[in-house]
Design a binder for these strands. Structure first.
Length: 888
RNA sequence: GGGCGGGUAGCUCAGUUGGGAGAGCACCGGCCUUACAAGCCGGGGGUCACAGGUUCAAGCCCUGUUCCGCCUACCA
């Protein structure tokens, strides 16, 4: 391998190369079983029709971070991938394809159509999978599953049959949400309510006998054709004296009863409600209570049925206009007023949904929901962040039966047969051949199941259930589910219900809910001024690693993520920074190939300091990842690499590396450098897998893939991770003094190439020793020509106070006294401000009495420190003013 | 109607038991210092939406107000 690195990092080839390498080496493969701790995640299966969007990118990145991290900790990791057959969506896609060929599914026929869908899947179904690979996803691809696979289909069938036998699935005539365009029933969840400006029509229904009538209000006048009653509240005083018990339904001229039902809201409109049991959920229930007929006037195609009389065949919205017109002519339309209300739309095609009477299959949700609630209450499953628990409970407490049948062709066909001769319904695991009555004239239910029915089984169906497989024994329940809150109900809650019912255990121990990047469907995308960003374009322009690091640092955000290319760029720079730090390191290793072998225990403060820092960073990364604080982990590493390792450590050890000190062993420093970089790569690998793998292979002493490298741990080695408080303290003093001197340089506009002479008055003997020991280091970092320890105050100097030590930058002749005066005044003002606050605290009796001792001590310490610092600066300001006065 | 989340630097946002207000980008000034100009050094900038309250101490806890967003719902 070429050990030389290019000047800048070029992600393109590197990414493709290493991904292929990982796959060919089988590094993503999970073992069926083993002694290691088992760690498992099932991927939220993207729609097979899907195209990678930001939501996937974030979701997959977080899962990949966890999986790679857990592998480095020695776990046996299973990340189960796959896709969802997405019934309606996929069927739509293929139907559109047929349309371009001038045909449709009805002409083609059911079997041939399903063939076509499979063909489509074969050809295009892998697109989303390949896009996940671009992100670096380390799924066990050999186990890839599809909800329509044979095995998963068997699981679906078993679940259906069992639930039916247990009385938890039933079939019946109910009001369901009907999409006239998709031609199928929808679950309540699949209907989106859009606020729409509609109209409220008030219509007079005359009494059957005598004068007058009742005025009812509706937003859907066309449904009146199917009215079978008018309802009023029995407590409504306005109607207490009402004698009439029938009205004439206008247009249809049908006599319908006036019923009394407490559902009616006396405060709304006239308090009289038209009842259409076949086209409204509430009316349906009123109808049940009063035994009203159900007249279906709107058909499955959205057009009026023959029950609608003269309006038969009309589109429902055309009919609305015509009915209104006709009512006007009859003088029965009393009022039209604007009325905003929520109109249900199909979540797939946005067509206005029609509540419609229909025979459908339902899952009795309550008994299943109870267990799902309890599992979260008892923390068998933790939802993280916890705030989402409330939403989860809220929905499950109010859960309604789940309509699972869909009148489409693509999906799991319901395993129910009806005997054409005796009407017997058979729900069987194996296709029945004949009925108990002897008839072989059986007809299978034509409906298929809701796609979510099969994805609710995902955590165990993918592992081979209903067989009791090794995989299930090893990996169920899964360790964590990573998902967005948008499918908390659709998917998470239903997996909980099914998992608990069929596996008798929760499907996952943790659920981590992350923020959402609104999809290209862009509900509110137009609002947020930023354009939709395509993850693949980002990967092209910025590289996967930069993109992933950005996403990780976004993980903690609330509910919405606004991604800016600018911000990703910042992390691309970070990747490049790391690259160059490695380039620098490798250059020195190359010049001294035997350094590591000849190294000894580090004595130089920067070496000891960086090892101590790495020790702490390692612990922090562990803690934050274990608690799903992805952004924290990413930020800790970012700061460590850039602002500690690069900004301070590399600069600090340059003199040693160039062997200019005569004091320190170059081999030891090179070995430390190597050790720190190597371990840092391992820490970073879960976040930025490609660049770290690339650099790993350039590092001497590494073997194989970085994916196999263990997470850094403390060792007894000479150069190992260990806390070193002394080195940290000493380095902090060094950094403080260097920064203070640089500040003077910057504010006084002294060119960087001008070396400065300094004098230091140490605060005490201990500091004096440290400063004496580290003065070369300080001098190098601050570009000093000299640093003398001297208790006398020099003339014509700029001053800084660090930790009680006063630093004088000698600038006689060069110093701009005006500037120095201003600079000191500014600094003193700042200190005074802070001191006022501290004084206030310390003069407060209550604070002294009630605050914990350590807090009081801390404030006292601060006060002393700042006071001393201010005193020093003030006396120096005095001095400057004297000189200034002499001159001026 | 019910529920939830948010309002912190010019912008995008962090801030997990209440105890010195942060990052990135943008901005200003100085640097081609032999890993990196995708860089280095320094700097300015915030009554943490508003009003009360609890507390020795509030960005953080409580109450109210306001603005924005989301989820959910069977008011025709």
């Amino acid at each position: 391998m070429d050990s030389k690195l290019d000047k800048g990092y070029e992600p393109h080839d590197v990414e493709a190369h290493w991904y292929a390498f990982w796959e060919s080496e089988g590094l993503f493969a999970a073992k069926e079983s083993g002694d290691e701790n088992a760690y498992s995640i099932v991927i939220p299966p993207p729609n097979v029709t899907g195209v990678l969007h930001m939501g996937h990118a974030l979701n997959v990145t977080l899962q990949d971070i966890l999986c790679r991290y857990r592998r480095s900790k020695g776990d046996n990791v299973l990340w189960m991938p796959g896709t969802d057959h997405a019934g309606i969506a996929t069927q739509n896609v293929v139907e559109r394809q047929l349309a371009t060929e001038g045909t449709d599914r009805h002409k083609v026929g059911r079997e041939a159509f399903i063939e076509r869908v499979w063909e489509w899947r074969k050809q295009y179904g892998g697109a989303i999978i390949n896009q996940l690979k671009r992100l670096g996803a380390s799924c066990d691809w050999d186990r890839e599953r599809f909800t329509m696979d044979e095995g998963l289909s068997r699981a679906v069938r078993k679940v259906f049959v069992d639930l039916y036998d247990q009385g938890l699935i039933y079939r019946g005539d109910y009001i369901i949400n009907w999409c006239p365009r998709c031609h199928t029933a929808l679950a309540d969840l699949e209907v989106e309510h859009e606020p729409t400006d509609g109209k409220l029509y008030q219509i007079l229904y005359p009494f059957a006998q005598g004068e007058g009538g009742l005025v009812v209000a509706t937003t859907r006048p066309e449904t009146m054709l199917g009215d079978t009653a008018v309802a009023i509240n029995p407590k409504d005083k306005r109607y207490a004296e009402l004698e009439a018990d029938k009205v004439i339904l206008p247009i249809m001229n049908r006599e319908i009863p006036i019923v009394r039902d407490s559902y009616v809201d006396t405060k709304f409109g006239t308090g009289a409600l038209k009842v259409t049991p076949a086209h409204d959920v509430n009316d349906f229930e009123i109808g049940l209570r009063h035994d009203l007929p159900r007249i279906k006037v709107i058909g499955e195609d959205g057009c009026m049925t023959e029950e609608a009389g003269d309006y038969q065949g009309m589109d429902r919205f055309e009919c609305r206009k015509k009915v209104v017109e006709d009512l006007k002519k009859l003088g029965l339309l009393k009022k039209i007023e604007p009325h905003e209300h929520g109109v249900g739309q199909c979540y797939r095609c946005k067509t206005t949904v029609e509540p419609n009477l229909s025979k459908q299959w339902f899952v009795k949700a309550k008994p299943l929901a109870e267990k799902a609630i309890k599992a979260v209450e008892t923390k068998k499953t933790r939802i993280i962040p916890e705030v989402w628990e409330k939403t989860y409970f809220e929905w499950l407490y109010n859960i309604r039966d789940w309509c699972i049948s869909r009148q489409i062709w693509w999906g799991h066909r319901i395993p129910a047969w009806t005997c054409a001769d005796c009407g017997e319904v058979m729900v069987r695991l194996e296709d029945p051949e004949k009925c108990a009555c002897g008839s072989t004239n059986l007809e299978q239910e034509s409906d298929v199941l809701d796609t979510w029915f099969s994805s609710a089984l995902w955590p165990f169906s993918t592992m081979g259930w209903p067989e009791n497989t090794e995989l299930l024994k090893t990996y169920y329940p899964t360790s964590v589910l990573i998902t967005g809150f948008d499918i908390l109900f659709f998917w998470v809650a239903r997996m909980m219900m099914m998992g608990l019912h069929f596996m008798d255990d929760v499907p996952f121990k943790d659920v981590y809910i992350h923020a959402l990047v609104r999809d290209e469907e862009g509900k509110k995308m137009s609002k947020s001024k930023g354009n939709v960003i395509d993850p693949l374009e980002v990967i092209e322009s910025q590289g996967t690693d930069a993109f992933r690091f950005t996403l990780a640092s976004f993980a903690a955000m609330g509910r919405d993520i606004k991604l800016s290319v600018k911000r990703i760029e910042g992390y691309r720079h970070f990747i490049n920074k790391l690259w160059n730090a490695a380039r620098f390191t490798l250059g020195h290793i190359e010049k001294n190939p035997d350094a590591a072998a000849n190294a000894s225990k580090p004595t130089a403060i920067p070496d000891r300091w960086i090892l101590s820092r790495l020790h702490q960073v390692t612990q922090q990364v562990e803690e934050t990842l274990d608690s799903y604080q992805f952004n924290e982990a990413a930020n800790i590493l970012y700061k460590f690499v850039w602002h500690e390792f690069c900004d301070w450590y590399l600069e600090a050890v340059k003199p040693i590396l160039y062997d200019e000190t005569g004091k320190f062993d170059r081999n030891t420093t090179i070995a430390t450098l190597q050790r720190v970089l190597t371990n840092t790569l391992v820490l970073l690998h879960p976040f930025i897998p490609f660049v770290t793998e690339e650099l790993w292979h350039h590092m001497p002493g590494t073997q194989g893939s970085i994916m196999k490298a263990p997470f850094p741990a403390d060792t007894d080695e000479a150069i190992g991770l260990c806390p070193d408080k002394e080195a940290e303290g000493e380095m902090e003093l060094v950094m403080g003094m260097v920064t203070a001197i640089r500040n003077i340089r910057g504010e006084m506009n002294i060119p960087p190439n001008m070396a400065l002479a300094t004098v230091v008055q140490p605060s005490d003997e201990a500091n004096s020793i440290i400063i004496e020991r580290e003065k070369d280091l300080i001098a190098n970092l601050a570009r000093l020509s000299s640093m003398k320890i001297d208790l006398n105050r020099p003339k014509g100097a700029a001053t800084a106070v660090v930790d009680g030590n006063t630093v004088y930058v000698l600038l006689e002749g060069v110093i701009d006294l005006d500037k120095e005066e201003a600079r000191l005044e500014k600094e003193i003002a700042k200190l005074t401000n802070e001191l006022i606050k501290l004084d206030k605290k310390l003069n407060n009796e209550d604070f002294l009495a009630k605050a914990p001792d350590d807090v009081v001590e801390k404030v006292r310490g601060q006060q002393a420190e700042l006071t001393e610092k201010r005193d020093h600066l003030e006396s120096n300001l005095e001095k400057v003013r004297q000189i200034h006065g002499d001159k001026g």
